[in-house]
Computed example of a mutant assay.
Amino acid sequence: MSVQGVTLCRMSATDGVFARELAELAGRELLALRLAEGFGDPAKLRAEGDRRAHELIMAELAASRPGDAILSEEGEGEQGRTGTSRRSADRVWIVDPLDGTREFGEEGNTDWAVHIALWERGKGLTAGAVALPAKGYTLGTDVPPDAPGQVSAGPRIAVSRSRPPAWTEKLAEATGGSLVPMGSAGAKVAAVVTGTVDAYVHAGGQHEWDSAAPVAVAVTAGLHASRIDGAALEYNAEDPKLPDLLVCRPELAEVFLRELAGLL
């Protein structure tokens, strides 16, 4: 299968390897688009990035995993948020073709990602990859990332640079930490995995495709991932809204959940 002159067909690859290769393929397409189009019309660039990455991913899933269902941020009908067939499927790919569309359209901004995750009935998230094309690396469940080292000072907390929850300043004060504004959920979780920050806290609106692949990678790396009230993260739900998220080093989970309970 070919889209925009690139080809990938991995019928026999493991799901983890396939997720990584697909995320990286879409990432290369997005980097090429940025280079070719430039940043003179950011709205056009963002729209074209969403479209091209989505079409590439859909084509490759159809070729390499034809029997699986799909939930995509950019999807329509059965591949989008209102589809119903995925609810009875045993395997569902949950994808965000371009996480951080706003950042993608900003010259010099590297906080955008490609998310590819697989949910399986009775198992939950079983494979995932987060490509950070402008940063030059990909994190995936096929090669579990090393757990970051221990916190040496107050925790660094990644938050949305455009819409952080109103209580984040109080959370930082209560935990002795500091806030690090960033774009893209994938970039924020990747920062926790790599040790750039120690936690990522979000509330106020997300969907399954925003967190599925990052959470799959984070859990594989031994990190804590949950709702901000401590509840488990559930995927392939009837309504794909999944509005809040906590990803952090495991030794910080208890204190963060305790402080969050007092703030919510």
Rank of each mutant, 00 (worst) to 15 (best):
V130W: 05
A174P: 00
L45V: 02
V201Q: 13
L252T: 08
A89I: 04
Y235D: 08
E60K: 10
A53K: 04
V189W: 08
L45R: 07
W119Q: 08
S88P: 00
H202S: 14
D244K: 06
L139Y: 06
V3N: 04
A216Y: 01
A53I: 02
R87G: 00
A47C: 00
M1F: 13
L245C: 09
E254C: 02
E60Q: 14
Q150K: 12
E73C: 05
R102H: 10
R87S: 08
W112F: 10
K170F: 01
F104A: 09
E169S: 12
S64L: 02
R86S: 09
F18Y: 14
G67T: 03
L8W: 07
A134Y: 05
S152R: 04
W209E: 11
S85H: 09
D90H: 07
D15G: 03
V6F: 10
G183F: 01
L242M: 14
W209Q: 03
T141K: 06
R86D: 10
V197G: 11
R28F: 01
T138G: 14
L132I: 08
A13C: 05
L264D: 09
S152Y: 00
S160H: 10
V215I: 06
P164K: 13
A26N: 08
A36Q: 15
L118Q: 07
L8H: 08
T220H: 04
E73V: 02
S226D: 13
V192P: 11
G80C: 05
G183S: 11
R52M: 09
V193L: 06
L260S: 14
G204E: 10
W209T: 13
E55F: 02
V130A: 11
E234F: 00
L246S: 13
G195P: 09
G183N: 03
A47E: 13
G205I: 06
S226C: 14
W93L: 03
A134R: 02
S152T: 12
P240G: 12
E259H: 13
A153L: 01
E107Y: 03
G154E: 06
G38R: 05
A127H: 13
V114P: 08
M1S: 15
V159E: 06
V247L: 10
A32S: 14
A23D: 09
E106M: 12
